[in-house]
Amino acid sequence: MSDLAKAKLWIALFVLVILAPVLALFWGPHPEGREFWRELSAAYGFAGLALIGIQFIPTARLPFLAQLFPMDTLYAFHHKISIAGFTLALAHPLLLFAGNPYTLRLLNLATAPWRARAAVIAVILFILIIITSVWRKDLRIRYENWRAVHDLFSIAAAGLVLYHMFMVNHYMAHPFQRVYWSTSAVVWALAVIYIRVVRPIQLLQRPYRVVSVQAERGEAWTLSLEPDGHPGCHFMAGQFAWLVARTSPFSFRDNPFSFSSSAENKNRIEFTIKELGDFTATVKELQAGERVYVDGCYGTFDIDQHDAPGYVMIAGGIGSVPILSILRTMRDRKDNRPVIFFYGNPDWEQVTFRKDLDSLTSQMDLKVVHVLEQPPDNWRGETGFITAEILDKHLGVDRANWHYFICGPIPMISAVEKALLQLDIPLVKIHTENYEMA
């Protein structure tokens, strides 16, 4: 079965799993019918938890999903679906209160039954989860602390909601609902156990050693690693991995970085990391011989899965890292298909891989179009941002048959994607990776 067919099957399964508990509500025998708002409230409750519960899956880095769907899409999906799920779940009590204001007494934690207390606490936890996730940086919460709290609150809230549902026991009395929600709880728990226990154990068995840390232009550092006592990971050019350094794989301090080395070099892997604060600032302090862990490989941002007569790479700043990996791999494979690389940077001094790109142009069919926001005085190249005009000027007549890979911050990806659509590039030929996913 092709990857596309598998992806479609997973999407169909997702829709089915989400709709199942709501569709099953139609399935009798039923308790006696109640007023409209109360029934609508119950249905929203089921719909909300179905969406919220499934959130344990996309972030568990399950290999069979990561192989089919880009990880940043899985995360974007997680963010959007969680908010949608919470909104539906919140509509459940709100409709209940609106339909029958007497039910407001359930909010009084001192006198309310435990099934109501559990729901109220779960809603408070969900609100805290959303606030700390959406505004983590504004609230200055450290990434690893946020991850720990996010995990703990999510598990607690899911448990409390399940307790609430089983204790209310209205539509939950139906055997389908009991089996569905019990099975769901087991699946959610397995996803958490996989990412928090199984995966770290696997990483401990496959350590890497730091070979060197080399400074690059644009406040970036290239970290070279060699597998320690195992064959290493065979990544595809353009993929990324989560890096764990100076801590245990069981900690919450792992960070995703793209490989910058050639996928043909099996014995040594390299990451190029821009210094942005938090973990990235410690990369330069790593010493040769130090032990690190690499959770990978992930991502579908690679040319092997998207055969084309030629490629267009578009990067903003450090988004060039996976593209360098693709270019170096093509060079090592003596792949002579033409590549045009549009590379946007603030200024000439900060262009990471400037020299590497110069030498790559002589080793393969590569044309690099530098686009600078603040060009030096004698600059003859492109200036400003990567726009439809700049793309149009450099792309050939066969442009609709080529594949396009864009990596950079989200606003840059959106702008370039729009520009490509303006130039009649088919949507299916555009591949994106944003580096601010989690």
Partner: peptide
């Protein structure tokens, strides 16, 4: 590209959920 697909899937899924929930509530309350 993937974001557009993800957004469409979200709209369809949530739309169906809202629709079925509404239908259910009508059927049960009449």
């Amino acid at each position: 590209m993937q974001d557009i697909y993800a957004r469409n899937l979200l709209i369809i899924t949530v739309g169906l959920l809202l629709l079925f929930a509404f239908l259910f509530a009508i059927l049960r309350s009449i």
